[in-house]
Nucleic acid binder design. Structure first.
Lengths: 158, 158
DNA sequence: ATCAGATACTTGACTAGTCAACTAATGCCT
DNA sequence: AGGCATTAGTTGACTAGTCAAGTATCTGAT
Protein backbone atom coordinates (compact mmCIF):
# COMPACT_ATOMS: atom_id res chain seq x y z
CA UNK A 1 0.00 0.00 0.00
CA UNK A 2 1.77 3.14 -1.14
CA UNK A 3 0.99 6.11 1.09
CA UNK A 4 -1.08 8.93 -0.34
CA UNK A 5 1.10 11.69 -1.76
CA UNK A 6 1.56 14.83 0.23
CA UNK A 7 -0.35 17.04 -2.13
CA UNK A 8 -3.19 14.52 -2.10
CA UNK A 9 -3.45 14.72 1.67
CA UNK A 10 -3.31 18.49 1.58
CA UNK A 11 -6.37 18.81 -0.58
CA UNK A 12 -8.02 15.82 1.14
CA UNK A 13 -8.45 14.02 -2.10
CA UNK A 14 -9.57 10.44 -1.66
CA UNK A 15 -9.12 9.10 -5.15
CA UNK A 16 -5.74 8.75 -6.78
CA UNK A 17 -4.76 11.28 -9.44
CA UNK A 18 -5.46 10.29 -12.98
CA UNK A 19 -1.82 10.79 -13.88
CA UNK A 20 1.41 11.99 -12.38
CA UNK A 21 1.31 14.84 -14.87
CA UNK A 22 -1.98 15.94 -13.35
CA UNK A 23 -0.61 15.62 -9.85
CA UNK A 24 2.39 17.73 -10.79
CA UNK A 25 0.16 20.36 -12.35
CA UNK A 26 -1.90 20.61 -9.20
CA UNK A 27 1.18 20.76 -7.01
CA UNK A 28 2.54 23.53 -9.20
CA UNK A 29 -0.61 25.61 -8.89
CA UNK A 30 -0.85 25.08 -5.16
CA UNK A 31 2.78 25.75 -4.39
CA UNK A 32 2.90 28.91 -6.45
CA UNK A 33 -0.33 30.16 -4.92
CA UNK A 34 1.28 29.89 -1.49
CA UNK A 35 4.49 31.54 -2.58
CA UNK A 36 2.61 34.33 -4.29
CA UNK A 37 0.46 34.99 -1.25
CA UNK A 38 3.43 35.32 1.05
CA UNK A 39 5.04 37.67 -1.40
CA UNK A 40 1.81 39.58 -1.67
CA UNK A 41 1.43 39.92 2.10
CA UNK A 42 4.87 41.51 2.40
CA UNK A 43 4.36 43.89 -0.51
CA UNK A 44 0.85 44.88 0.41
CA UNK A 45 2.13 46.02 3.77
CA UNK A 46 3.95 48.66 1.68
CA UNK A 47 0.88 49.40 -0.37
CA UNK A 48 1.78 47.70 -3.65
CA UNK A 49 0.78 44.48 -5.38
CA UNK A 50 3.11 41.81 -6.75
CA UNK A 51 2.51 43.04 -10.27
CA UNK A 52 3.20 46.65 -9.31
CA UNK A 53 6.42 45.58 -7.60
CA UNK A 54 7.44 43.78 -10.75
CA UNK A 55 6.87 46.93 -12.82
CA UNK A 56 8.95 49.01 -10.42
CA UNK A 57 11.83 46.53 -10.62
CA UNK A 58 11.70 46.52 -14.39
CA UNK A 59 11.81 50.31 -14.47
CA UNK A 60 14.64 50.48 -12.00
CA UNK A 61 16.55 48.05 -14.21
CA UNK A 62 15.88 50.21 -17.24
CA UNK A 63 17.46 53.27 -15.65
CA UNK A 64 16.77 56.93 -16.35
CA UNK A 65 15.88 56.50 -20.05
CA UNK A 66 12.81 54.57 -18.98
CA UNK A 67 10.81 52.21 -21.16
CA UNK A 68 7.72 52.44 -23.36
CA UNK A 69 4.56 50.94 -21.87
CA UNK A 70 4.32 47.79 -23.94
CA UNK A 71 8.00 47.04 -23.52
CA UNK A 72 7.30 46.81 -19.80
CA UNK A 73 4.45 44.40 -20.47
CA UNK A 74 6.81 42.14 -22.42
CA UNK A 75 9.23 41.93 -19.54
CA UNK A 76 6.67 41.11 -16.90
CA UNK A 77 7.05 37.81 -15.10
CA UNK A 78 3.32 37.25 -15.24
CA UNK A 79 1.42 38.38 -18.30
CA UNK A 80 -0.33 41.72 -17.69
CA UNK A 81 -2.88 42.84 -20.25
CA UNK A 82 -3.91 45.60 -17.86
CA UNK A 83 -0.52 47.26 -18.00
CA UNK A 84 -1.97 50.72 -18.64
CA UNK A 85 -4.04 50.69 -15.47
CA UNK A 86 -1.23 49.15 -13.50
CA UNK A 87 0.87 52.14 -14.48
CA UNK A 88 -2.05 54.49 -13.76
CA UNK A 89 -2.04 53.31 -10.15
CA UNK A 90 1.71 53.55 -9.81
CA UNK A 91 1.65 57.04 -11.28
CA UNK A 92 -1.16 57.94 -8.92
CA UNK A 93 1.02 56.93 -6.01
CA UNK A 94 3.86 59.03 -7.37
CA UNK A 95 6.12 56.00 -7.82
CA UNK A 96 6.34 56.30 -11.59
CA UNK A 97 6.27 59.16 -14.09
CA UNK A 98 5.05 59.01 -17.67
CA UNK A 99 5.72 61.20 -20.64
CA UNK A 100 4.70 60.96 -24.26
CA UNK A 101 7.76 60.15 -26.35
CA UNK A 102 8.74 63.13 -28.54
CA UNK A 103 10.23 61.12 -31.42
CA UNK A 104 7.34 58.66 -31.65
CA UNK A 105 4.24 60.24 -30.25
CA UNK A 106 2.41 56.90 -30.11
CA UNK A 107 4.66 55.73 -27.34
CA UNK A 108 4.60 56.68 -23.70
CA UNK A 109 7.90 56.54 -21.87
CA UNK A 110 7.66 55.37 -18.28
CA UNK A 111 10.29 56.04 -15.65
CA UNK A 112 10.62 55.15 -12.03
CA UNK A 113 10.31 58.23 -9.79
CA UNK A 114 12.44 58.94 -6.76
CA UNK A 115 9.84 57.69 -4.25
CA UNK A 116 9.71 54.49 -6.27
CA UNK A 117 13.46 54.03 -5.93
CA UNK A 118 13.24 54.70 -2.22
CA UNK A 119 10.47 52.17 -1.81
CA UNK A 120 12.41 49.53 -3.73
CA UNK A 121 15.53 50.21 -1.71
CA UNK A 122 13.53 49.63 1.46
CA UNK A 123 12.00 46.46 0.03
CA UNK A 124 15.21 44.92 -1.32
CA UNK A 125 16.45 43.35 1.89
CA UNK A 126 12.96 42.23 2.88
CA UNK A 127 12.33 40.54 -0.44
CA UNK A 128 15.77 38.96 -0.41
CA UNK A 129 15.07 37.50 2.99
CA UNK A 130 11.69 36.29 1.83
CA UNK A 131 13.10 34.53 -1.25
CA UNK A 132 15.56 32.89 1.01
CA UNK A 133 13.02 31.81 3.55
CA UNK A 134 10.74 30.41 0.86
CA UNK A 135 13.29 28.63 -1.28
CA UNK A 136 16.45 28.66 0.74
CA UNK A 137 15.83 25.28 2.28
CA UNK A 138 16.57 23.76 -1.11
CA UNK A 139 20.20 23.04 -1.83
CA UNK A 140 21.96 24.77 -4.69
CA UNK A 141 21.70 21.55 -6.71
CA UNK A 142 17.99 21.26 -6.04
CA UNK A 143 17.43 24.85 -7.11
CA UNK A 144 19.25 24.20 -10.37
CA UNK A 145 17.20 21.07 -10.85
CA UNK A 146 14.00 22.99 -10.24
CA UNK A 147 15.02 25.70 -12.68
CA UNK A 148 15.73 23.09 -15.29
CA UNK A 149 12.40 21.35 -14.82
CA UNK A 150 10.51 24.63 -14.97
CA UNK A 151 12.39 25.57 -18.15
CA UNK A 152 11.26 22.33 -19.72
CA UNK A 153 7.67 22.96 -18.74
CA UNK A 154 7.71 26.45 -20.21
CA UNK A 155 9.26 25.07 -23.37
CA UNK A 156 6.20 22.82 -23.74
CA UNK A 157 3.79 25.76 -23.75
CA UNK A 158 3.15 26.57 -27.38
CA UNK B 1 31.41 33.69 -19.72
CA UNK B 2 28.39 31.67 -18.59
CA UNK B 3 25.35 32.23 -20.79
CA UNK B 4 22.37 34.06 -19.34
CA UNK B 5 19.78 31.69 -17.94
CA UNK B 6 16.69 30.97 -19.92
CA UNK B 7 14.35 32.74 -17.59
CA UNK B 8 16.65 35.74 -17.63
CA UNK B 9 16.45 35.98 -21.39
CA UNK B 10 12.70 35.56 -21.33
CA UNK B 11 12.14 38.59 -19.18
CA UNK B 12 15.00 40.46 -20.89
CA UNK B 13 16.76 41.04 -17.64
CA UNK B 14 20.25 42.40 -18.07
CA UNK B 15 21.62 42.08 -14.57
CA UNK B 16 22.20 38.73 -12.92
CA UNK B 17 19.73 37.57 -10.27
CA UNK B 18 20.65 38.35 -6.71
CA UNK B 19 20.40 34.68 -5.80
CA UNK B 20 19.46 31.37 -7.31
CA UNK B 21 16.59 31.29 -4.83
CA UNK B 22 15.27 34.49 -6.37
CA UNK B 23 15.71 33.14 -9.87
CA UNK B 24 13.81 29.99 -8.93
CA UNK B 25 11.01 32.03 -7.39
CA UNK B 26 10.64 34.06 -10.54
CA UNK B 27 10.72 30.95 -12.71
CA UNK B 28 8.04 29.41 -10.52
CA UNK B 29 5.74 32.41 -10.86
CA UNK B 30 6.27 32.68 -14.59
CA UNK B 31 5.87 29.00 -15.35
CA UNK B 32 2.72 28.67 -13.29
CA UNK B 33 1.25 31.79 -14.84
CA UNK B 34 1.65 30.20 -18.27
CA UNK B 35 0.22 26.88 -17.17
CA UNK B 36 -2.70 28.57 -15.48
CA UNK B 37 -3.50 30.65 -18.53
CA UNK B 38 -3.60 27.65 -20.82
CA UNK B 39 -5.86 25.88 -18.37
CA UNK B 40 -7.99 29.00 -18.12
CA UNK B 41 -8.35 29.32 -21.88
CA UNK B 42 -9.69 25.78 -22.18
CA UNK B 43 -12.11 26.14 -19.29
CA UNK B 44 -13.35 29.57 -20.22
CA UNK B 45 -14.38 28.18 -23.58
CA UNK B 46 -16.89 26.19 -21.51
CA UNK B 47 -17.84 29.23 -19.46
CA UNK B 48 -16.11 28.46 -16.17
CA UNK B 49 -12.97 29.68 -14.44
CA UNK B 50 -10.15 27.55 -13.05
CA UNK B 51 -11.44 28.06 -9.52
CA UNK B 52 -14.98 27.13 -10.51
CA UNK B 53 -13.67 24.00 -12.20
CA UNK B 54 -11.82 23.10 -9.03
CA UNK B 55 -15.03 23.44 -6.98
CA UNK B 56 -16.94 21.23 -9.39
CA UNK B 57 -14.28 18.54 -9.17
CA UNK B 58 -14.29 18.66 -5.40
CA UNK B 59 -18.06 18.29 -5.33
CA UNK B 60 -18.02 15.45 -7.80
CA UNK B 61 -15.48 13.71 -5.59
CA UNK B 62 -17.69 14.25 -2.55
CA UNK B 63 -20.61 12.44 -4.15
CA UNK B 64 -24.33 12.91 -3.48
CA UNK B 65 -24.00 13.82 0.21
CA UNK B 66 -22.27 17.02 -0.85
CA UNK B 67 -20.05 19.19 1.33
CA UNK B 68 -20.50 22.25 3.53
CA UNK B 69 -19.20 25.51 2.05
CA UNK B 70 -16.08 25.95 4.13
CA UNK B 71 -15.08 22.33 3.72
CA UNK B 72 -14.89 23.04 0.00
CA UNK B 73 -12.70 26.05 0.69
CA UNK B 74 -10.27 23.86 2.62
CA UNK B 75 -9.89 21.45 -0.24
CA UNK B 76 -9.24 24.06 -2.89
CA UNK B 77 -5.92 23.91 -4.66
CA UNK B 78 -5.63 27.68 -4.54
CA UNK B 79 -6.92 29.51 -1.49
CA UNK B 80 -10.35 31.02 -2.13
CA UNK B 81 -11.67 33.48 0.42
CA UNK B 82 -14.48 34.32 -1.97
CA UNK B 83 -15.88 30.80 -1.84
CA UNK B 84 -19.44 32.00 -1.21
CA UNK B 85 -19.54 34.06 -4.36
CA UNK B 86 -17.79 31.38 -6.34
CA UNK B 87 -20.65 29.08 -5.37
CA UNK B 88 -23.19 31.83 -6.10
CA UNK B 89 -22.01 31.90 -9.69
CA UNK B 90 -21.99 28.13 -10.03
CA UNK B 91 -25.47 27.94 -8.59
CA UNK B 92 -26.56 30.71 -10.95
CA UNK B 93 -25.37 28.58 -13.86
CA UNK B 94 -27.27 25.60 -12.49
CA UNK B 95 -24.10 23.56 -12.04
CA UNK B 96 -24.39 23.33 -8.27
CA UNK B 97 -27.27 23.20 -5.79
CA UNK B 98 -27.24 24.46 -2.19
CA UNK B 99 -29.39 23.66 0.76
CA UNK B 100 -29.23 24.72 4.38
CA UNK B 101 -28.21 21.75 6.48
CA UNK B 102 -31.16 20.58 8.65
CA UNK B 103 -29.08 19.27 11.55
CA UNK B 104 -26.81 22.32 11.77
CA UNK B 105 -28.56 25.30 10.31
CA UNK B 106 -25.36 27.33 10.19
CA UNK B 107 -23.99 25.11 7.46
CA UNK B 108 -24.93 25.08 3.83
CA UNK B 109 -24.58 21.78 2.01
CA UNK B 110 -23.41 22.08 -1.57
CA UNK B 111 -23.87 19.41 -4.20
CA UNK B 112 -22.96 19.13 -7.82
CA UNK B 113 -26.04 19.23 -10.05
CA UNK B 114 -26.58 17.05 -13.11
CA UNK B 115 -25.50 19.73 -15.60
CA UNK B 116 -22.32 20.07 -13.56
CA UNK B 117 -21.62 16.38 -13.89
CA UNK B 118 -22.28 16.53 -17.61
CA UNK B 119 -19.94 19.47 -18.00
CA UNK B 120 -17.17 17.73 -16.08
CA UNK B 121 -17.63 14.57 -18.09
CA UNK B 122 -17.17 16.60 -21.25
CA UNK B 123 -14.13 18.34 -19.83
CA UNK B 124 -12.37 15.26 -18.46
CA UNK B 125 -10.71 14.11 -21.67
CA UNK B 126 -9.84 17.67 -22.65
CA UNK B 127 -8.21 18.43 -19.31
CA UNK B 128 -6.38 15.10 -19.33
CA UNK B 129 -4.97 15.90 -22.73
CA UNK B 130 -4.00 19.35 -21.56
CA UNK B 131 -2.15 18.10 -18.49
CA UNK B 132 -0.34 15.73 -20.73
CA UNK B 133 0.57 18.34 -23.27
CA UNK B 134 1.81 20.72 -20.59
CA UNK B 135 3.74 18.31 -18.42
CA UNK B 136 3.93 15.14 -20.46
CA UNK B 137 7.28 16.00 -21.97
CA UNK B 138 8.85 15.38 -18.58
CA UNK B 139 9.82 11.82 -17.83
CA UNK B 140 8.20 9.96 -14.97
CA UNK B 141 11.38 10.45 -12.94
CA UNK B 142 11.41 14.16 -13.62
CA UNK B 143 7.78 14.49 -12.58
CA UNK B 144 8.56 12.72 -9.30
CA UNK B 145 11.54 14.99 -8.81
CA UNK B 146 9.40 18.05 -9.45
CA UNK B 147 6.75 16.85 -7.00
CA UNK B 148 9.39 16.33 -4.38
CA UNK B 149 10.89 19.77 -4.85
CA UNK B 150 7.49 21.44 -4.72
CA UNK B 151 6.66 19.50 -1.54
CA UNK B 152 9.80 20.86 0.03
CA UNK B 153 8.93 24.40 -0.96
CA UNK B 154 5.44 24.13 0.50
CA UNK B 155 6.91 22.69 3.67
CA UNK B 156 8.94 25.87 4.04
CA UNK B 157 5.84 28.11 4.04
CA UNK B 158 4.98 28.71 7.65
C1' DA C 1 -32.39 28.33 31.32
C1' DT C 2 -28.93 31.61 29.89
C1' DC C 3 -25.24 33.79 28.14
C1' DA C 4 -20.37 34.10 26.34
C1' DG C 5 -17.76 32.47 22.87
C1' DA C 6 -17.07 29.93 18.73
C1' DT C 7 -18.56 28.55 14.10
C1' DA C 8 -20.33 29.04 9.44
C1' DC C 9 -21.21 31.60 6.48
C1' DT C 10 -22.88 36.31 4.09
C1' DT C 11 -22.61 40.95 2.63
C1' DG C 12 -20.64 45.46 1.27
C1' DA C 13 -17.12 48.21 -0.46
C1' DC C 14 -13.13 48.11 -2.93
C1' DT C 15 -9.30 46.70 -6.01
C1' DA C 16 -7.64 44.21 -9.70
C1' DG C 17 -7.77 41.59 -14.02
C1' DT C 18 -9.91 40.69 -18.79
C1' DC C 19 -11.60 41.34 -23.32
C1' DA C 20 -13.05 44.02 -27.10
C1' DA C 21 -13.57 48.20 -29.28
C1' DC C 22 -11.48 52.56 -30.15
C1' DT C 23 -8.08 56.51 -31.11
C1' DA C 24 -3.83 58.43 -32.44
C1' DA C 25 0.46 58.20 -34.79
C1' DT C 26 3.59 56.07 -37.97
C1' DG C 27 5.30 53.52 -42.01
C1' DC C 28 5.06 51.79 -46.18
C1' DC C 29 3.55 51.42 -51.11
C1' DT C 30 2.13 52.95 -55.03
C1' DA D 1 1.21 62.89 -51.70
C1' DG D 2 -2.72 59.78 -50.36
C1' DG D 3 -4.30 55.89 -48.23
C1' DC D 4 -4.15 51.37 -46.04
C1' DA D 5 -1.98 48.46 -42.73
C1' DT D 6 0.51 48.42 -38.46
C1' DT D 7 1.79 49.84 -33.99
C1' DA D 8 1.03 51.85 -29.29
C1' DG D 9 -1.74 52.71 -26.08
C1' DT D 10 -6.39 53.89 -23.89
C1' DT D 11 -11.09 53.29 -22.47
C1' DG D 12 -15.48 50.97 -21.16
C1' DA D 13 -18.04 47.27 -19.49
C1' DC D 14 -17.67 43.31 -17.03
C1' DT D 15 -16.05 39.54 -13.97
C1' DA D 16 -13.49 38.02 -10.28
C1' DG D 17 -10.86 38.32 -5.97
C1' DT D 18 -10.05 40.52 -1.22
C1' DC D 19 -10.74 42.19 3.31
C1' DA D 20 -13.48 43.55 7.14
C1' DA D 21 -17.63 43.68 9.39
C1' DG D 22 -22.05 41.59 10.22
C1' DT D 23 -25.70 37.83 11.13
C1' DA D 24 -27.47 33.45 12.40
C1' DT D 25 -26.72 29.32 14.78
C1' DC D 26 -24.71 26.24 17.91
C1' DT D 27 -21.98 24.67 22.18
C1' DG D 28 -20.51 24.47 26.64
C1' DA D 29 -20.24 26.45 31.22
C1' DT D 30 -22.64 28.21 34.87
Amino acid sequence: MTPASRIQQEIKQTRPFRSTAQEAGIALLRTTDQVRRRMSAVLEAEGITVQQYNVLRILRGAGPEGLPTLEIAERMIEQAPGITRLLDRLEGKGLVSRERCPTDRRQVTCRIAKPGLTLLAALDPIVDALDDSMLGNLTRTELKQLLHLLDRIRAAQA
